[in-house]
Structures are given as C-alpha cells and as structure tokens.
Design a protein around this nucleic acid. Structure first.
Length: 262
DNA sequence: ACCTAAACCTGGGCGC
DNA sequence: TGCGCCCAGGTTTAGG
C-alpha cells in the first residue's frame, strides 16, 4: 500500500472534498472489502478525515467512523469509473461518489465505534508524536536489523518498504545493522532522514510505482525521486562508484549502497 | 523472544 | 503466443 505519505496525500485531498457530504448509499461489490453494517453509515454526514499511520479514518455525524486500510493495491477515487477491481462505491447525496478499487482484495473498510480499537496497536507516528528520546529507546531495546524495526507498525507506525529503504540510505546506515548498535549521533540523524523522506513523499503526492493513485486518479511523483528503492544495479547517487544492491530482509526486498551504507 | 514461510489475492513481467 | 515462475508499497498467523 500506500505508506504514510500516500495516505496523507489522500487525507489532505479528502478533507477538502468530502467533509460535509451525506452518504446516500453504499454499493458493496466484494463482500470481503467492507466489514460492518452499511445501514449504520447510510444517511450520515462526513464530519472529518483523519490519518493514523497508514490507516485513513472518515468520521461520521453519528460518532461512528469508517477505518480504511488500502494494503497493497487499494485506491480511493472521487467520481472514478467503476471497473473489475472496484469493490465498494459510496454515493453522496450531492451526486458525487467515491469508489474503492483493490485489485488484490487485501484492503478493507471497517465500520468502527471507537477508532482506538484499531489505533491502540500502533506505535508513534514519525511526523507526529515520535520524539528523539522515544526513537532512541525503541532502537536500543531491539537487536533486530534496524530496517525491520522501522517497518514494525507496533513500534513506529506508518513507514513501509519504500521509505524505510530510502531513509536508511540518506542516514548512511546499513539496513542489516542491529538497532541497538546504532550510535546516539546516528539515531538523531536517522530520525531526521526518516522525517525528510516522509515529508518529501507527501510533497510529491506519494509514490505511484505500482497501484497508488490520488483522489483524482492521478499518479504521485515520489518514484521519480527514489534514492535506492527499486534501483537495483543502478549507480549510487552519491557518485561513490558503487551500484545499488538488493537483498532480502524479513522477507522483503531491501535496497542499499554497499559502499555508502557499510 | 527470535526467525522464516505461508497465507490472504490478482496480475505484470520475464525466461524459455 | 503461451506457460510457468517470480515479484509486488502490507499484515497476520503458524511453526520451528
């Protein structure tokens, strides 16, 4: 999916576009994609849109919320044209509609009363409540490779494979380095680099190497600015003379410069 | 507590 | 063209 910057891109757009609208009806084309009772949602007004890590939350006038996780291939498109991967369609009373596409059917939309039932499992968000002191404590408490920790949603929430790889490159830290072996000075640098790649991701309106599209169906541009992600065999941008290598870590593709990230 | 592999799904890309 | 295999931005669960 969509990692933090992609979901934030959607939140910013949805806040402008759907707050105040009333949900007139919901078409559920794939039952797995919508968890809960749609009758609790129909007729309710949208009063706000929030983001918790990679989860988008649409708050309704009856104090219920819709929690949305796009996982690998989910899309939310305003007035998009439904097709074979369209799973859910929200019709608003003003004639607009919001369609949820999801090729792989991993994503979900849940009707929830208290959003904390979902968010209490999440660690701090690097662009919100994650402080350097807390980041330091998290890293020092684990012997796991640092990249796995960055992607552990219960420890640090919102970071996925793209931004974990690129943050480690910027910080010149090897993805395999044990988290508790990172020096104090490098911890501060890593947090700054993590925040930079996430903020830049938002600035580019997300990474659309694969499925991600914004609310208008447009691609983001972050993939044009990757440092190491998906750049196997290409020259390191630091002109160090080395090329980007790919290894597997925790079952996920991991990209790094063997010279700059020793 | 650690790790790995598989599972949930579909489809694009590549080698043969 | 076509088949089989590998891969994919995520998360959970099962097993060692």
């Amino acid at each position: 999916m969509p990692e933090l910057p992609e979901v934030e891109t959607l939140r910013l757009q949805l806040s402008q576009l759907i707050v105040g609208k009333k949900i007139k009806s919901i078409d559920i084309l794939t039952t797995k994609s919508f968890i809960g009772n749609k009758r609790q949602v129909i007729g309710k007004k949208i009063i706000g849109v929030r983001r918790f890590a990679k989860i988008l939350v649409i708050d309704l006038s009856n104090s219920l919320s819709l929690a949305i996780h796009l996982k690998m291939s989910g899309q939310l498109i305003l007035n998009g044209i439904p097709h074979k991967h369209t799973r859910v369609i929200f019709q608003f009373s003003d004639g607009n509609k919001l369609i949820f596409n999801d090729q792989r059917i991993f994503g979900w939309i849940k009707v929830v009363g208290d959003i904390r039932s979902i968010t209490n499992k999440l660690g701090p968000d690097p662009l919100k409540e994650l402080t350097i002191a807390r980041f330091s404590t998290i890293l020092k408490s684990s012997k796991k490779p640092v990249k796995l920790l960055l992607m552990d949603q219960g420890k640090i929430a919102g970071v996925g494979n793209i931004y974990a790889n690129d943050a480690l490159f910027l910080a010149k830290i090897n993805p395999k380095r044990k988290a508790n072996e990172i020096k104090e000075g490098s911890i501060a640098i890593l947090l700054n680099c993590l925040r930079k790649v996430l903020k830049d991701g938002i600035k580019w309106k997300g990474a659309s190497k694969n499925h991600f599209r914004d609310i208008y169906g447009q691609k983001g541009k972050a993939q044009e600015h990757f440092y190491v992600y998906a750049r196997t065999g290409e020259k390191c941008i630091n002109n160090c003379g080395s090329v980007i290598q790919k290894i597997t870590l925790g079952g996920r593709g991991t990209f790094f410069c063997p010279k700059c990230q020793s």
